[in-house]
Each structure stands twice: as structure tokens, then as C-alpha cells.
Design a protein around this nucleic acid. Structure first.
Lengths: 217, 217
DNA sequence: TAGATTGTTAATCGATTAACAATC
DNA sequence: TAGATTGTTAATCGATTAACAATC
């Protein structure tokens, strides 16, 4: 990486995975070079935005040519840290936890699922994709033993903060939170929320708006 | 609703569910009134932002008093359209589809799951929470018969666009998309994406950044 | 070399924050 | 009435877009 500004805005960061996804598609299609203008057309972004975004991390293009698709893809993978591996556990092995355990997207992001935990004795002992569900009381020891640095919380909202406390107590670095609540964690712990209910409410809002707009026609 | 601007920014809209969630918590705790300053402290927003946001939809507060918690909660529920019901189907009844089918958050958002569809004959016939999984060829007829207006796509990315085409062909109003791809739909169809892989990559990025920052200490 | 397209600076636009008069 | 706090306008900040010199 040629240069590396430290304060990249989250707006830019949240666009990176989309760049990565589309670059992968282009590589698969055999496209070798692309201009910011053409890439913008595909993504629905302005060419300006793409050039600004990429230049937060370095000059990956070449004047008069554009960007080498495969090279840019690999650069972004590197920026996203997809080449680094992170060991993860899922806490809460209900329906959602099990679905996440089966989630094939782990592969491509460098995350490796090492264990699952639950308080429900009926789930403890079951295996999902060769990952055994353990009792939550074994969690602290397991985190140390298996060098876990990511916790994925798939519990109901009631248990989520306590789980987060236990995870951060074991010096876990990041939490991927599916519980419908905001977690209170030490400032050096990263939390990425997936709030399904909020996404669904936004959908409800947009549908409701659309309907109201039609009524006023 | 006293007034109703038509062009509310998505930034505001995506904060509404969070307001709603915290107001619900406050109602449960028995808090009857709250000032924008105190509410901001709880949410981590500025008081200014809260007042600006709420005033997009109307003057729900009272000078010298603040906001009535329960009243404001109900107003926001109304703005979000949570009182309206929407009939939904899930397309793709694998692990994620089944987890979503079991998702309890439907209740509170006015969405009612009416059916599930898959192409896998081994899944067709199975019931999840009293919802039978049907063959995808029965989908079009079912949408008409059961008055479905929301499709939830839980297929792999390969099948997603074709499913979207079929759904929009049946005049569905909105799609909640879990497939890791962007859908091409008519402009009057609402799409709300839940891109798990993008969320996970952002987490990877933040962990990677944190690590690099520590190395430079 | 001429044409194309980047990297980067400047201009614009939109969102957030601050300030304060209105008013409960 | 005096104090509190809103609703709303103005100021600031940040993100996006436009423009263009640099350069492949």
C-alpha cells in the first residue's frame, strides 16, 4: 500500500465490499481493465466518487488506462484484511446461530468458525457442520485455548449484554452482533451490528410511504 | 400527523427504528416524559439531531416539557407503518430462510409470513412454524391467492435475480433481499438489502485497521 | 505525439450541530 | 411569572461531485 490515511470515513469503508464484489464479478467475466467511468456505470456511483474512494488508500490506477481489475480486486482484499484469518465463535445456537454457522460467506472473509455455545442443554452436544455446540460455561476456557478473537452474538436481546461482557472479559477483539440491542463494550472492542428488525422497519416505512404517495395521486 | 414532508433523507429514516426501540424500552421502564437532551444522551445522538429528525414528521414535543414517551413511541410506530400488515413469503428455504421464518421480529413490524418456497424437492412439504414449504412453481399462483406483497429472498446469489423477476412479475411491492447480490427491479419496487458478507468485510477491515494501528505504536 | 483517464484540488451539496426566539 | 425545552433558522462540518492539470 503506497499510502494509508488513518481516518477514512465509514461512508467510504462501507462501499469497499461492494467494490470488491463487483471486481470479483468482473474478474470472473474475464474483464482485465476498467475505467472509473465504466465502473461507476456498473455500480451506480459517479466516476469521481470511485476515484476519491480509491485514493484514500493509494493510486491504484494509471492515467490513460484505468484500473487493472484483478490487481485492484487484490488491493481491496488486502485493504479489507480478507487475507488475515480470524477465529470466531457463535454464541446462541438457535435458528439464527445455526444459519450463521452454515453461512458460506465466512470462507471468503478470512473468518473461521471454531465453536458454538448455548445455554440450552437440548442444543449442547449437537454438531453443525462439524462444529460442536458447547455449554456457555466452557466458553472462557475455549476462547483462550482456541485463540478466538471474534464473537458472534445470536442470542435474544435479553442475554446479549451479558454475553458481550463475558466475551470482552476474555479480551476478544470484535463482536458481530445479531441481537436486537446495542452493546456496551470497552472502546477498543469493535462491534458490527446486523439489526434485522431495523432493516425490516425501514422496509415497512418505505412501503407505507409509497402507499401514501399513491393515495394522494 | 401534523405535517408530512415527502423527501425525508434515508439518514433520518434509518434512525427511526432506533428511536422506536429505545422509546419502547423507556415505556417498559415506566418513563413517561423525556427531553431531547436526555434522549440524546441515551442514544448517543445530539439533542439537536433528535429535534431535527422528529420535526421532519411533526411537532411531537412541548416546550418546557419535552416529549411524552408513549405518545412519541406510537407516533413513530405510525410513521414507520408498523400498524399496517403486509403478507410475505420467503423464497429459498435453506438454513437462512428457515432462520428468518423463525424470526420473531416479524410480529412487531406488521409482516405476516404466509408461505415458503424452494426448488429443492427434499425441502418441499416440510413445515416451519406451521408454514409449509412449497415448490417454487406454485409461487405465482400463491402470491395472487394469498395477497402477498413482500418477497424475502434467501436464495444463493445465482438464483436471486430470477426470483426477483418472478416476484416483480407478480406485482409484488417490496423485496427483503438476503442474497449477496444487487437486484435489478422496476423502479416502483422497494428493495431493502441485508448483505451479511459486506457487514462481515467491514468487521474484517476494522479489525485489520486496529491491528495495523497497534503495530505502529 | 494525441487521446484517454487518472489523481487531486476546488465547488457544491447535504447533513449535522449550534443558537435562539417562541411558548408551554 | 420564571424556567425549561421545544421548533426552527443559521452556521458548520463533512461528503459528494465537478473540473482540470498531470501523465501514461
Amino acid at each position: 500500500m503506497e499510502k494509508m490515511r488513518s481516518n477514512i470515513s465509514m461512508a467510504v469503508i462501507r462501499r469497499l465490499p461492494k467494490y470488491y464484489r463487483y471486481l470479483n464479478d468482473l474478474v470472473e467475466k474475464g474483464v482485465t481493465r476498467i475505467s472509473s467511468m465504466e465502473f461507476g456505470r456498473i455500480l451506480g456511483f459517479t466516476a469521481s466518487q470511485i476515484r476519491q474512494d480509491l485514493n484514500c488508500f493509494g493510486g491504484f490506477g494509471q492515467q490513460g488506462y484505468g484500473y487493472n481489475v484483478e490487481e485492484l480486486r487484490d488491493e481491496i482484499a488486502n485493504i479489507l484484511g480478507l487475507n488475515k484469518t480470524n477465529n470466531a465463535i457463535i454464541v446462541g445456537a438457535g435458528n439464527l446461530g445455526q444459519a450463521i454457522a452454515n453461512y458460506s460467506g465466512f470462507r471468503g472473509s478470512g473468518f473461521i468458525l471454531k465453536g458454538m455455545f448455548d445455554i440450552n442443554p437440548r442444543l449442547v452436544g449437537i454438531s453443525i457442520r462439524d462444529i460442536k455446540i458447547m455449554d456457555i460455561d466452557e466458553m472462557s476456557e475455549f476462547i483462550k485455548k482456541a485463540d478466538i478473537n471474534v464473537g458472534i452474538i445470536c442470542t435474544p436481546k435479553e442475554g446479549a449484554q451479558e454475553v458481550a461482557d463475558r466475551l470482552t472479559g476474555e479480551r476478544i477483539k470484535a463482536i458481530w452482533n445479531f441481537a436486537p440491542t446495542d452493546l456496551d463494550v470497552p472502546e477498543d472492542v469493535i462491534v458490527e451490528n446486523v439489526h434485522l428488525s431495523e432493516s425490516l422497519m425501514v422496509l415497512a416505512y418505505l412501503m407505507n410511504q409509497r402507499e401514501n404517495a399513491e393515495d394522494n395521486k
